[in-house]
Structure formats: structure tokens, C-alpha cells
Amino acid sequence: MLGLLINDIEQKEVEYLLKRELEELLMDLEDHRIDHLVKRAMRERYRILFQLFRRVASEQECLKYMPKRTKNE
């Protein structure tokens, strides 16, 4: 296990960056032109980023970006 010591300003910056990346992935996942294999990799990246986001964001913020369940899950 690794630890990270950051101040409040750095926490807000990390939260902001993760939110932007999650929003971009959500937008791209809805694009029908993107191949399903690429979308699978994007969903995996989303899960990883969301796990990081949970560590720095409030519960209310996390609810906004909660990954939706698909038929396969």
C-alpha cells in the first residue's frame, strides 16, 4: 500500500482533473462511432479513475459519476 500526502488545494486540483477525465470518457462512451473493443478499454480506464476519484471527492460528488451497470455486469 502506498500513501500520498497532499494539501487541500492539491486535493481540489486532483478532484478537478479526475472529474474532467471522467466526463470526457462518459461522452466518448456514448459515441456510436467508437469500436466496442476500444469502449471496453475506456470502461476499464473509467473504473480505475473512479476508484481514484472516490479517494479525494465527497460522497455527493461520487454519486454524480457512479458507473452505471451494464447487462454484462
Rank of each mutant, 00 (worst) to 15 (best):
M1R: 11
E10M: 08
L63C: 03
D35S: 09
F50P: 01
R47M: 11
D31V: 02
G3S: 12
Q60K: 08
L2W: 11
L52F: 05
R45S: 04
H32D: 12
N72P: 12
D28H: 07
V38T: 14
E23V: 11
D8S: 07
L22M: 03
Q11K: 10
S58P: 03
V56Q: 00
R43I: 04
V56G: 00
E73H: 04
R47G: 04
R55K: 08
D31H: 03
E21H: 13
V56Y: 01
L4N: 00
Q11P: 08
R40A: 08
R40G: 12
D28E: 10
R45M: 04
Q11D: 07
N7Y: 02
E73Q: 06
V38D: 12
L22F: 05
R20A: 14
E30D: 12
E59P: 00
C62L: 05
E24S: 09
V56R: 02
L18W: 00
R43N: 07
H32Q: 09
L63V: 03
S58W: 01
E13H: 11
L18M: 03
K39M: 00
R55Y: 02
E15S: 07
R54W: 07
L2R: 07
T70R: 07
K19E: 04
R69M: 06
R40L: 08
V14Q: 12
M1G: 13
L17K: 15
I6L: 02
E59L: 04
D35V: 06
V56I: 02
M42K: 04
K12G: 13
L29T: 08
V14A: 09
K12S: 14
R40D: 13
I9H: 14
E59V: 03
R33K: 10
E15P: 04
R54T: 06
A41T: 15
I9M: 13
L52S: 10
L26F: 15
K71G: 07
L63M: 05
L22P: 06
K12Y: 02
E21T: 05
Q51T: 13
E61H: 08
D31Y: 06
N7K: 02
G3D: 04
E73A: 02
E10R: 02
K64W: 09
E24W: 03
E59G: 01
N7V: 01
E30F: 06
G3Q: 07
P67V: 00
R47Q: 11
D35M: 09
L52R: 09
E44V: 11
L5I: 08
M27H: 14
I6Y: 05
E13I: 14
L52H: 10
E73T: 10
E44C: 10
S58H: 03
E61K: 08
L2Y: 11
